[in-house]
Nucleic acid binder design. Structure first.
Lengths: 237, 237
DNA sequence: TGAATAGTGTCTATGAGACAGTATGTA
DNA sequence: TACATACTGTCTCATAGACACTATTCA
């Protein structure tokens, strides 16, 4: 008789890929590690799940600890994937449930607590440098950005990067930053305003983007776009 | 000073949503539980991750234990989502990483070991009966089937339900079973054969589906379909 | 006035869907 | 021969993309 194989009992973490648009670029929230391993290296924010705490609650708690954002201020939060390779943390085995968050371009309320070293960095710089991040965080970041790019195709979640009232130009800038391409303003305008449930017009306008006053919209109630807004054929910038 | 909150240490499980097509219907592999809790109820196959074992390896191991299928015989395996609500298992907290598998319509080699009670059941029957499954397995099943339906739209993974050599009719039957609709044979044929990397023709034909001999195809090398094959407009059966 | 953006019109190319029609096997 | 399925042709409609054009603000 073989002895039964030892079952795993492990710590559970949540890691966060927090994305936002600022200065026309897709940015990701990173912290600089103050302790080994990977001391001084950038890493995704995250932490351990507590006894009795739901996974998504843990993600919201960590997000609030790092950014000060309460759940209602987060544009979108979804589970991304779970990373659990045996040696992904050199100290001990950790199963990490990664979450993906979209937040509007806000002045972050504070950078207190663990977050004294948190900053928003350009996503493409960390995508191209494979070993700039601690642990397996490069793989998690890749996974999160690819998910974000795909979600913009078939959901109206681009609006999660915008303030509650936004113009079509501001929405287009989200697509251009996330996909890294430029889109035709006229066709984009028609597509978005004609897509049922994508955006809802208000009777307000703004001139904050310059030029002729633009109508302000709020998020629609659709969960998916039919038909989708495909990046495939779009012209590279 | 508050005491630091207790961190979670927990068992890690993998649960499997194993889908296949047989007799024209989408079916899911279920086991009948022999022990409490939920004794006698249907459940998704699954088990605990071992010390030092990778998550995907654990999924393959469980799949082989339940079905006898070696990794190479599995059409497709991907991580689905992680379920970790505090009371999802009434005995103790378990974090379960769910996987989704597509397997061809094979006579399952054996039903030994844990799998003495395993069977392939019609998916839609268990989708509509919310409390027919143990634990939160109904939610996991819903998640898996929705993922499968979506994946057929923008990937060539329908072929993962087929034997290595298949006809366009057989591929269409996969779509019809998973989406629960009927598709126009002529348009489907053109769409699939013209979509780059979806299927690769061989020089063999078969008459196993009746009628004029049909060309046999093998899976192409594309990972995604451009443009996708959308279920949106398709006519309900 | 010119520069900038908003928003509409319109032409073309592409693909989906409906469905007719031809090809080639089995019973 | 009847039939079943394979596959192609063709028509119509919807949408994407290119791009011209008008509208409305600010400097």
């Amino acid at each position: 008789m073989k002895p039964p194989p030892a079952l795993l009992r492990s710590a559970i973490a949540v890691d966060l890929v927090v994305l936002t648009i600022s200065e026309g670029a897709l940015r990701v929230l990173l912290i600089r590690r103050g302790i080994p391993p990977f001391k001084g290296r950038y890493a995704l924010p995250g932490g351990f799940v507590r006894d009795g705490e739901d996974l998504e609650d843990a993600a919201h708690r960590e997000l609030q600890e790092e950014t000060g954002l309460r759940p209602a201020q987060v544009g979108h939060l979804e589970q991304l994937r779970t990373f659990g390779a045996p040696r992904r943390d050199p100290r001990e085995r950790v199963i990490s449930v990664a979450y993906l968050a979209f937040i509007p371009n806000l002045p972050l309320p504070y950078a207190g607590g663990d977050a004294a070293t948190a900053s928003l960095e350009k996503a493409d710089e960390f995508l191209s440098e494979r070993s700039a991040l601690a642990f397996d965080h490069h793989e998690i970041l890749e996974c999160g950005i690819e998910r974000a790019r795909a979600k913009l195709e078939y959901t109206p979640l681009a609006a999660a990067f915008c303030p509650t009232h936004f113009t079509i130009l501001e929405l287009r800038r989200v697509y251009e930053a996330v996909w890294g391409i430029s889109l035709d303003p006229a066709n984009f305008h028609r597509k978005v305003t004609k897509s049922p449930g994508f955006v809802t017009p208000t009777d307000e306008t703004t001139t904050r983007d310059g030029g002729r006053p633009a109508r302000l919209f709020v998020r629609g109630d659709a969960e998916t776009l039919h038909p989708p807004l495909l990046r495939h054929g779009a012209s590279a910038d």
